[in-house]
Design a protein around this nucleic acid. Structure first.
Lengths: 343, 343
DNA sequence: TTGTAAGCGTTATCAT
DNA sequence: ATGATAACGCTTACAA
């Protein structure tokens, strides 16, 4: 209580290795060995050290350790705050975090969250990452044009992404089979007799938007149909608007594959307002399988992707990467069609 | 490229203060001063140092700095992963994170995310926090019975919470006026002529659940009515179930105040299934103002709380706390009644 | 105004 | 199996 407070109110004299060593009557080196689980310490000594540790409530200082080991046991999740999926009720973000957190926790690593909201934030993040705060970086949903990937590319920091490809750099990534999922949706629509199948696509500056459109186009082409596309930004509102456009342009459409459930939810409303029955007049399939699918009217058929698992896999890869291992450039997780009542 | 790889693949020889000093022809101390913005450095020297910094791409090493300053510039957000609000489409979690992230970013601090999922995770977190990794802790939605607050209480780590009161310890907190919000909802119901007003309460082991029930009871008592309560766990499903109970017990109820929008959404479905018209037969008011309120049938009247602002305020307080300042034991943010069509 | 040097709390090398 | 001791990269008295 008499110690100089420099910054913060960390008053109590910190317990160090030295203190433990003194109490246990051994050297600092020995305490360090015990604390780090070395097998070359005589059991008796080990025990007395452990007792001293417990008595004193010793916990190794992170900074000191990290200074010498050159590793922090922390990993950064960088994501663009602007990302509409992050702050809607899309559940992408919570699910991702849950997966990351689970797997990181199992490895006794920590997650630091970096939101790249604006230019200032971007500078801060870059500085932070380069300052050796973390052992690796998980890049989520970076947009095309985002400068960070480029910067990171020139670094020796391990990076993993969930995007198929960023501007010029390409990091190994872990994604879901969006192309396949979209194609499966269209295939189902075709298989159930739909003939004029439109799509509401997502933003075309990120894989989630691009790939789902690719899958749609591919399958439409395969069946000799022609593409009918409107574009939204993954929000409900944009879904409503896009659906109106579609209806105006192609009044005779009988199905829509929508690149996100939220947009599909919006589309459902437009359809209802326009007096079209779903699925009788027009079938709708979304993408993501968020909770609202079960509560919409009618319940929404969709493509399910396992974001929690994606998070876990992302972690497994970055962990390997930061051990110097080489990992597969791409891991693609499967998706599945879940049928409810809208198609 | 010839350097020993110890852990990680951090190969490239790290640029240190020393390197910059050498290049700029000054001492390490001077470089340090420049980097830390000291005003006592001659402009010419300052410039040449800055140039060297840029040329070399120097970024101060976090661990080294933190070792001597005893501060990390990071703050932990601890939240119980079990928390249903975290992984539903409740938006509490994303909004909180957004607020924290914004305000922390403005202060050039970082956020580390700690999910307390199980006992093992809990031990890890405790260890992590005690290891001096962070300058302060933000405790979100700790449940009653959670052991962490107690542990933290015996520490000199600054802690701020969003719960009015934890088991035995009480940290300063930043909350919303849940009691007042619930009371306002009931008051509106009474004011519009409702007479048999029930409630679906949330879990009674956390402030969010407790306070909303208190507000309901208080206002019901004030108007001489009698309480009719069922309890859920903040999920839609529990809302459906609770509403069924209510209907069974009190078939003549004409209004329900529901402690969360998700539960209210569930209740709406039950009501509809039971052939009760909303708001004609029974009025419904929720709590939270999540996005779904605008899309439910009918759109849901609710109590709006500004979680982003709560996050920001939480940060402001923990920042002050970790500077050794004393902060007000409680900051209570206002809520507001937003009327849509369900009441 | 600038430099020198003493730590900060660990881990790791090298003797013993 | 254990103990000195030298880093690790930085900040900060204190001296000049």
């Amino acid at each position: 209580m008499v110690f100089g407070v420099r910054k913060g109110s960390n008053v109590r004299p910190r317990v160090t290795l030295e203190d433990v060593a003194l109490r246990a009557g051994v050297s600092r080196a020995t305490v360090s060995r015990v604390v780090n689980g070395s097998q070359t310490v005589k059991p008796a000594i080990r025990d007395s050290v452990l007792r001293a540790v417990k008595d004193l409530g010793y916990v190794a200082n992170a900074a000191a350790r990290s200074l010498v080991t050159r590793s922090t046991n922390s990993y950064a999740l960088v994501l663009p705050e602007a990302h509409t999926r992050v702050f809607s009720d899309d559940q992408f973000f919570p699910r991702l975090i849950r997966g990351l957190s689970e797997e990181l926790g199992a490895a006794d690593k920590q997650l630091v969250l970096l939101m790249s909201s604006d230019a200032a934030a971007h500078r801060r993040i870059e500085h932070y990452l380069l300052g050796g705060h973390v052992d690796g970086v998980i890049l989520a949903s970076a947009h095309r044009g985002d400068p960070l990937p480029g910067t990171l590319g020139g670094t020796d920091l391990p990076v993993i992404s969930n995007e198929r490809v960023l501007d010029n750099v390409d990091f190994p990534y872990v994604g879901v089979d969006a192309v396949g999922g979209a194609a499966a949706a269209v295939r189902h629509l075709v298989g159930t007799g739909r003939r004029r199948i439109a799509t509401i696509a997502g933003p075309q500056d990120m894989s989630a938007g691009i790939d789902r459109l690719i899958g749609y186009r591919r399958e439409i082409a395969r069946t000799g149909g022609s593409s009918i596309v409107a574009t939204g930004d993954f929000t409900r509102q944009s879904g409503e608007v896009a659906m109106r456009e579609l209806l105006a342009d192609e009044p005779d459409l009988d199905a829509v594959f929508v690149a996100s459930d939220l947009m599909a939810h919006g589309a459902l409303r437009t359809l209802q307002a326009a007096g079209r029955r779903v699925p009788d007049d027009v079938a709708v399939i979304g993408f993501d399988d968020v909770e609202i699918c079960q509560y919409s009217d009618p319940p929404l058929s969709t493509i399910r992707q396992d974001i929690v698992e994606m998070g876990r896999t992302l972690v497994r890869q970055i962990l390997r990467l930061s051990c110097g291992e080489v990992v597969e450039p791409a891991v693609v997780l499967p998706v599945s069609l879940v049928l409810r009542q809208s198609a």
